[in-house]
Design a binder for these strands. Sequence first.
DNA 1: ATATTTATTTAGCTATATCTAAATTATTTT
DNA 2: AAAATAATTTAGATATAGCTAAATAAATAT
Lengths: 220, 220
Amino acid sequence: MNMTTAEENYLKAIYHLSDGGKKSVSTNDVAAEMKTKPASVSDMLRKLGDKEVIEYRKYYGVNITEEGKKRALQTIRKHRLWEVFLVDKLQFAWDEVHEVAEELEHIQSPLLIQRLDAYLNYPKFDPHGDPIPDEYGDVRARPRVALNEMEIDQTGQIVAVKDSSAAFLRYLDKVGAYIGARIKVLDKVEFDGSLEILVDQKKTLFMSKDVAANILAIQS
Amino acid sequence: MNMTTAEENYLKAIYHLSDGGKKSVSTNDVAAEMKTKPASVSDMLRKLGDKEVIEYRKYYGVNITEEGKKRALQTIRKHRLWEVFLVDKLQFAWDEVHEVAEELEHIQSPLLIQRLDAYLNYPKFDPHGDPIPDEYGDVRARPRVALNEMEIDQTGQIVAVKDSSAAFLRYLDKVGAYIGARIKVLDKVEFDGSLEILVDQKKTLFMSKDVAANILAIQS
DNA sequence: ATATTTATTTAGCTATATCTAAATTATTTT
DNA sequence: AAAATAATTTAGATATAGCTAAATAAATAT
């Protein structure tokens, strides 16, 4: 059973909004995420329901099915592999890749994705630090913690950001932080929760609690 | 002015059928090339005419405009660059790349194509030996000759095939010929026009006149 | 010059994916 | 529990891209 590009995009949105299938999702939420109108969403949900990738009860929102989850993860896998390609091979900055990957993820060729995966050396995480599902949809997520929740003297590595808006990504770039950077918490100001961070054992960085809460790290 | 994937495909077909804009093209020819019905083509020609990428006179076929030529060449450029990528980087065989490149060529990102071009080291020819137009649509074609038109003892390099059907490509692969192979005409049988060819200074190959007529080389 | 054949276009239909406006269902407030 | 509000669906549009069948124009044959 083939899906159109639009259907794939809706399914991916539902997967994300449902937190990987854990919660049910409302028509309005999907409309907001897809930047479209609830009326259009109703139509699409009926179609996705017919294809049994979601379970749809009128007026009560949707739940993604196992089949739907599998398909959403394949799309996510493709998206993230292309992002790695764009950054690692074509020198894109990590805040420039999303739009293009959004198109590339819909190319239909299992062989292409297999080969791309091998060519990129089977990466486990994309340039934003998000995990890349394997061929079977399995994801090995690392336990991640927001920087503001780390304690003084703890060390780790930045692996993702919560708010990946271009503005925030540019800000990070400017101050010298990036996905993959090794960090150490030098100080936490009790008054406002702001932090002093050592980046790559050389650069010292001050950031507000709000910024820190947007940056996710794995602890080492 | 943006074009849909379908419009880009029609324009590319018209470009090829018109021999790069030199001849006008009939509705039926386009329908055959696009594997669709003449009625659907009429509709599309009207649309492409409105967008001024072709000049369309009802009942008299179409001529591609300068603007149309430029756009068709951009699509061809993208198609051929992706083919190079698939063969050079992802180990695709040259008879496996067309379908996937047909999808990839519609990705909209000038930056992507610029970077891809640089990454592939500005290739001038695709894996089938066809020239890759530059950013401005300029093509540097090499004078090519069919193998059956070469004389005994002449040397050269295979750069393209006329019939690029998967069957023919597989045949070539099987007998050990490929795009880029250095060749020398050892003998020509007058009776049936069949040839004896030395490939890469080691392998000897016999081929009928019909096969030879399908293989294009540059002479050295 | 007329008739036949071929090529092409038009008209009307289908499917996808969107929209607005109206109708309906569910939820919340009083 | 009724009224008001919010969420959602349905109905009826539009645009793209295809189709078949019928109509029409152009080319060819008699």
